[in-house]
Amino acid sequence: MSALTATGAVLPRASRVRLRPGLILAGLFVAAVVVAALVPQLLAPHDPLQIGAEGAFLPPGGSHLLGTDESGRDVLSRMVYGARPSLVMGLGATAIAVTGGAVLGLAAGLGSRLTESLIMRLIDVVLSIPELLLALVVITLAGAGSTNAMFAVAFAGIPSYARIVRAQTHIVRRSTFVEAATGLGIPRSTVVWRHVLPNAIRPVLVLSTIGVGSAISAGAALSFLGLGAEPPAAEWGDMLSNGLQYISNDWFLVAVPSVAITLTVLSITVLGRELRRRSEGRTT
């Protein structure tokens, strides 16, 4: 084998090695979060809601690895049980936002010029309002609570997804394979469903992995503001705003959910970026 192909083979491998540790850690952490969300009883040593007999504000160690909170509940167990609402928020809000964005984007990309400009101007208007404020408007009109918070976060995310889908639809509808399908006499709805939609939505799906992370962060922000999950539930944002009252003596109560949220969002972002990089065909 010539030296040229040898170096050609070595180079991408070298760059992959450089990326590996961070990627693996991110992957492992996301896997742990998924396990915690699916079967929390496997990882949690205690019931997250049970008020402990051993006392409140226990320091980390012993049977309570991360200590106990103001009601004597086990912090580690609450952290583990907090994975599910966060993941549901992230995945649910992103799924709704992508679906809404796809519908609006396709309608704009395939509809008449009037439809298109109406939708796009509407999106311009909504984009002029910061996402958190939009979510707050939805909560004002619909009320607080974790389901409404999920819809609020989703609603705020729709415009940016719609923009990308529309731009992509414009590219796809002019491509030769769509022309060929139309030329073959395949009905318009089939062409849209089988050819335009899958190709227009692919880049959005890649981007939406990063979106899951942002949605978790936004959902936690709403809980932190007291507008998401209701108190006794084990939820990271709520644990955080609750622990804030005791931050001067027991900063651990705040640090644990902070670390959980941050690592989850960071890991998902790292994986999402790698996915985007690969889909764009870049290796470094």
Binding site: G213, A220, V254, A255, T262, V265, L266, T269
Partner: peptide, 22 residues
């Protein structure tokens, strides 16, 4: 930068509070 941009605003504030205030 990646870590900071992925960290929710309130977490950044809490870390600063724990370090500089408490």
């Amino acid at each position: 930068e990646l870590t900071l941009s992925a960290t929710p605003t309130f977490v950044i504030g809490i870390v600063l509070l724990i370090v500089f205030s408490f």
